[in-house]
Design a protein around this nucleic acid. Structure first.
Lengths: 153, 153
DNA sequence: ATTAATCCGATCAAATTGGTCGCATTAGCC
DNA sequence: GGCTAATGCGACCAATTTGATCGGATTAAT
């Protein structure tokens, strides 16, 4: 149905939380989970993935936790989503192992690939920092650049 | 994983096919299914949904079939996808029955709603007619970007 | 040593999705 | 009128994906 997984949602919420609490050092997974009612074990795995992807730094032991590896302005929603959900292909007929398993005559790939690229560009343009100040009036402007992006052939 | 369902893929392929064969009258579901190796029963249900959504006209009986209800330039990919997969919400925390079941503190809704709107706009701007003349030979380039993407899982 | 935290893998249940079947309805044709 | 080819519709099942849980291992500060 073209939606993010809950894990990606959780990941974005956690990143946003860490961005807002960046100055207080690191937060434990448990803290973040309790703040939003997320199952702690689930969130733990998500944060581990984000760490492996280089978006977070982790600190073991007592008083440990996670903190952003980069400034919140330098981390895009796309990176977070991709780290958690893997590469995103809007078309079902493009998989990690190649292309259409079923038919060679799938003729909608190429146009949809451009849509895919557009969506990636949108997500790349959204930074974690922007999500913390939710009432920015830049939505309209972004929308306009999108319309320019989608000139199909 | 933020991708279309196969049904939506099938639906777009069928719409494109009908757009290309608009002058030959109507096509049966079976014909379209055989052209692309789609299970006929599955495609039948998809075409029925598109008909109920007003995107196709159907003709019963012998020599019957489906044809576009409007010109291919007047039908967007968004309409097709939405007719098949239902309303698309990029966030998991927004459902048809309202919003976040779990927590009231989901703070990423508002920024993601804008992303959602942007994606809708992209899909609305893509018309079926545009997908029919997309034979630019950029396949090699695409494959390369794909290979780069597949470094992870 | 204890404790609080990240790491990692395996597993299980629930939801979604893809596909199939059966039957009813409609319309053209002999 | 009956046959046939087509849509229309609902129920059902299998496969996949997703969400969540559990058990243990590692690390580091006190």
């Amino acid at each position: 149905m073209l939606k993010l997984t809950k894990k990606a949602d959780y990941g974005l919420m956690a990143m946003k939380h860490l961005a807002e609490h960046a100055e207080e050092g690191s937060c434990s997974a448990k803290d973040v989970a309790e703040s939003y009612g997320i199952p702690p074990e689930a969130l733990a795995k998500i944060l581990q993935r984000l760490t492996k992807a280089g978006l977070l730094h982790s600190q073991h032991g007592i008083n440990g936790g996670y903190k952003l590896a980069r400034d919140a302005h330098e981390i895009s929603a796309y990176e977070v989503i991709r780290a958690i959900d893997g590469p995103l292909f809007i078309t079902s007929c493009i998989t990690v192992r190649g292309e259409c398993d079923q038919t060679e005559r799938c003729t909608i790939r190429e146009p949809l690939r451009k849509v895919n690229q557009s969506i990636e560009d949108v997500l790349k343009s959204i930074k974690i920092a922007e999500m913390t100040e939710a009432n920015d009036p830049t939505g309209g402007e972004r929308k306009k650049t999108l319309d320019e992006l989608v000139t199909l052939t």
